[in-house]
Design a protein around this nucleic acid. Structure first.
Lengths: 250, 250
DNA sequence: AAAACCCATCCGGCAGAGCCGAAAGCTTTG
DNA sequence: CAAAGCTTTCGGCTCTGCCGGATGGGTTTT
């Protein structure tokens, strides 16, 4: 752990994180929350406001819409996003459940887009939401198509942390499942991340068989029985295939 | 202009901006783009990666989905956003045009949400897009319900910059229009921001008559004649009223 | 296969920038 | 109107960000 990190950068983003996580606040309020000297926090907020990423109103600081903009632009640069867009809508319509697009980023699965019952009540599915790869259907779908040593590395770095009582924590079991994902063409998760929730996901591959993301459908266990699972699996696999074709045209 | 700004913070975000604006890049690539020493850029990127807002893949740096997440969270903390959501969808459906929700931030109008023809081809309407208040219907709708001295301040700081040949550049004319906005209850812009584009917008007020945002419908001039304008104005005013009621329940 | 080149990365000493205690302004509260 | 609680300013000491140069891996050129 070299710790080459630049202290100012670290602190600036600590402030951003705090504002993003727990909402707006005043100078001394934030100073206390982060256990920093008031004047220091003041200096940083000043600097951050000048960047345009933070704004003040009535001595209350908060994040600006610049984050939305940057996030949005990044998303548009990702080919998968463009390639999947229409498909995702279809999937949501055909299954009647939440359909999401995920990618892998820094050893985690991240939601890029959500379709149906937008970002409404669902606290777990919003753009930018991160989750462990091994504890979700889309994560497993992506792992299944990564080189084995890459998977080993991820397990090394992240561990197989249990999120619910059903999360896979044994590497053996994980590798077995990845094998069957490769055979079936889709992954499934039953309460491994959220109790009572079933997710079914298919990987999105490009023409050189690199994983680019995953399409996922989630719903309450009660609503998704054996036959519905097969239906859903069909729908998302078709969508993933179409996406793959689209990718080549982007 | 004291310039109290913290150099490290400034530089860190300059890098973020560059990556957001012109896409990913390597160390020396970015060093050149920003005219900074390579080793310095390397240090900053290192620090930024540690924050989780930037990621490296194959020596190529880019923004992460954290921006999406932060932007998303902010949006959810804004009451207007929640209050307007269903309405916006209805507006888009009823008018068949792009419907957007905007707020004021740092003397500018910013798009918070877009409905219909999602964030597709429309390069001008995406979440986070910023525009001058005086050159757009939603901007004028919001200005009309701000205290006069606030409007003066904004004109002082931002000026009435011409975006197209039809943009209002005369304060007198602007104030006249704001008056008629107050009488009609909605604002209109004909090619003042984008040539050939008509926008109609209604302000969203809370119970103490503070402006909280604006609902806007845009479309090509050719498609929106006199009668359609009135229809649209009715639809968005109704939506704005419902939103106002919703605001009290949030 | 050696040489030339282009990268990212490491190193380390110096200057200047970040740091924060203390004091000064502003509002709000009792 | 005093007191409390906030933001903001100030300024000198110290630490840290800075960047030229060295290192080394990787690729292309000769």
């Amino acid at each position: 752990m070299g710790g080459t990190s630049n202290r100012s950068v670290e602190r600036a983003f600590k402030l951003v994180d705090e504002l993003a996580e727990n909402g707006s606040g005043g100078v001394s309020d934030l100073a206390e929350r982060l256990d920093m000297p008031v004047s220091t926090v003041h200096d940083y907020l000043q600097a951050l406001v000048e960047t345009g990423y933070i704004t003040v109103d009535e001595k209350t600081y908060q994040t600006t819409t610049r984050f939305l903009e940057v996030g949005h632009r990044q998303r548009h640069r990702l080919e998968v996003f463009k390639a999947v867009r229409d498909e995702l809508e279809d999937v949501a319509a055909e299954t009647g459940e939440h359909a999401t697009l995920l990618i892998e980023e820094d050893d985690q699965a991240v939601i890029l887009a959500v379709q149906e019952g937008p970002d409404a009540i669902n606290l777990f599915a919003y753009p930018g939401a991160r989750m462990p790869l091994h504890a979700t259907a889309p994560g497993k779908a992506m792992l299944a198509y990564m080189p084995a040593d890459r998977v080993d590395d991820i397990i090394d770095r992240q561990g197989l942390v249990a999120v619910t009582s059903r999360t896979i924590t044994d590497p053996e079991v994980l590798f077995e499942q990845l094998e069957s994902v490769r055979q079936q063409g889709y992954a499934i998760d039953e309460g491994e991340r959220i109790a009572g929730m079933v997710c079914i996901a298919a990987p999105i591959l490009d023409k050189s068989d690199q994983v680019r993301g995953s399409i996922c459908v989630c719903g309450p266990q009660s609503r998704i029985d054996e036959t519905r699972r097969n239906e859903i699996a069909d729908v998302i696999q078709r969508a993933a295939n179409v996406t793959q074709v689209n990718l080549d045209y982007v």
